[in-house]
Design a protein around this nucleic acid. Structure first.
Length: 416
RNA sequence: GGCGGCAUAGCCAAGUGGCUAAGGCAGCGGUCUGCAAAACCGUUAUUCACCGGUUCAAAUCCGGUUGCCGCCUCCA
């Protein structure tokens, strides 16, 4: 239980539970908006007090923890592997100027497993008096409770490596004598101008702010373009590029929907073979990249290659043949399947493109009626082959930020 | 001060001992088009911050230098 929650609860004269629930709800709103799936289990520390107490008892019994004025501390010196995750040595850290001893601790880096409650604070009964759990114990206790003494993957931000994850390992392994987790996955930070984005620096954008202007899939594609371990510099410029790229895929998906309804020539297409090889290769390469430490940046590279192969196939008109059409459909399905893993391409292509257009119209205060009107006028000039006047209108539209596209089925337009 | 990470084209970004250093954006040339746009084709790093070393072979390993970032807090 976090001090911030307690302080807020006192300030607002509400229960800590209410405060926590409120923030959980806000968190859900953002995560749902980002198309993040809900976890299977979402344990709460306050609902696992007995297990936490049990663990602390075990650590005391084994001599890894000690009591001091009603608080229970973990003794880092007793755990010989302490520092193995963050590759730090206790002596080195003491040498660092910022560590100082706190009264009651035997070693400055010893951390609380159980804190004696002060008045006003929520508390639970324990063999050591009324108090609340320390700040690392709930993570290792709850994860082991649901996943076993040893489990495969533990994630978190890079800033949690020390001390939080280091302490989790110490608590868990001291108690069980078994490895805590097999793989640690630590993601890099989102940065602004090469600086960590953080509340205290004030250099942050909220999810809501961003989603106000961008489709959640745009943000996802942007984030997935980097390897999760690398830091990523956030900028609207990059977001715009991701938006264009996403539109590129949706345009292709829209095109394949149109092609699906084209009546094929009843014969086979000679280019189907190389294309089918490309599709197969993309599938294998994409999976290989994802199997290699979730290399989404590489996988997205293969996604682009597949897109190009598909567009090439369309360009060659392979889809006009029965087997070619089938193959293109399969390739499009594959792209959608990859997208599903990334949480992108979940919209109907038509909707996505329309939404994007509407959004841009709004932000540029563009009236579609005026655009349509100009396009009609231009069509008249084009009919009469008065190209100069037609081009004049096109340039005017371009100045307004409208790009028009002449197709066999008429003129369409998009907001730049 | 201690520890860790990063440095690859104009920009973003994969690649961690040996195929032509992925992919995207931007640029340039072409196909298509009345001209464009989109799409497609071609092109854009003899070289991976710098200096030395190991090796038949280095962006990749080792040592050093410079620059940037992060962690070192009873914040989880």
């Amino acid at each position: 239980m976090d001090d911030k929650i307690i302080n807020r609860a006192i300030k607002e004269k509400k229960s800590a539970d209410e405060i926590a629930q409120r923030y959980i709800n806000e968190f859900y709103k953002d995560m749902d908006a980002l198309l993040v799936l809900r976890p299977t289990v979402e344990p709460r520390a306050t609902q696992h007090i007995p297990q936490i107490i049990e663990s602390i008892k075990g650590l005391l019994d084994k001599g890894f923890a000690y009591e001091s004025n009603g608080d229970i501390y973990f003794s880092v010196e007793k755990f010989k592997d302490y520092g193995k995750l963050s590759r730090r040595k206790l002596d080195d850290m003491i040498a660092g100027a910022r560590v100082c001893a706190i009264n009651g601790k035997r070693h400055p880096l010893d951390f609380a497993l159980w804190k004696k409650s002060k008045s006003d604070e929520p508390y639970w009964h324990s063999p050591w008096g009324d108090g609340r759990p320390g700040w690392h114990i709930e993570c290792s206790v709850m994860s082991q409770f649901y996943l076993g003494e040893t489990f495969d993957i533990h994630g978190g931000g890079q800033d949690l490596i020390f001390p939080h994850h280091e302490n989790e390992i110490a608590q868990a392994e001291a108690l069980t004598g078994k490895p805590f987790v097999h793989y640690w996955i630590h993601n890099g930070f989102v940065k602004i101008n090469k600086e960590k984005m953080s509340k205290s620096l004030g250099n942050f954008f909220t999810i809501r702010e961003i989603l106000n202007d961008y489709h959640p899939e745009v943000l996802r594609l942007f984030l997935l373009s980097n390897h999760y371990r690398s830091p990523i510099d956030f900028s609207y410029d990059m977001l715009n590029k991701a938006e264009n790229n996403l539109e590129k895929f949706y345009s292709f998906l829209l095109e394949t929907e149109r092609i699906k309804n084209v009546k094929p020539i009843n014969s086979s297409f000679k280019l189907a073979n190389p294309f089918s090889e490309q599709v197969k290769e993309s599938k294998e390469e994409w999976e290989k990249a994802m199997d290699d430490d979730f290399n989404s940046a590489k996988a997205i590279g293969h996604l682009f290659s597949l897109l190009r192969a598909c567009n090439h196939f369309i360009h060659e008109e392979g889809y006009k043949y029965e087997d070619g059409q089938k193959l293109l459909g399969e390739a499009a399905d594959l792209i959608k399947k990859f997208g599903e893993v990334f949480g992108i391409f979940s919209e109907k292509p038509e909707h996505f493109i329309k939404k994007l257009k509407t959004k841009k119209e709004k932000s540029r205060s563009i009236d579609p009626a005026i655009i349509e009107d100009l396009i009609k006028k231009r069509a008249v000039y084009r009919e009469k082959k008065e190209w100069e006047k037609a081009d004049e209108i096109r340039n005017k539209l371009l100045e307004m930020g409208i790009q028009i596209m002449d197709t066999p089925k008429g003129t369409t337009w998009k907001v730049l």
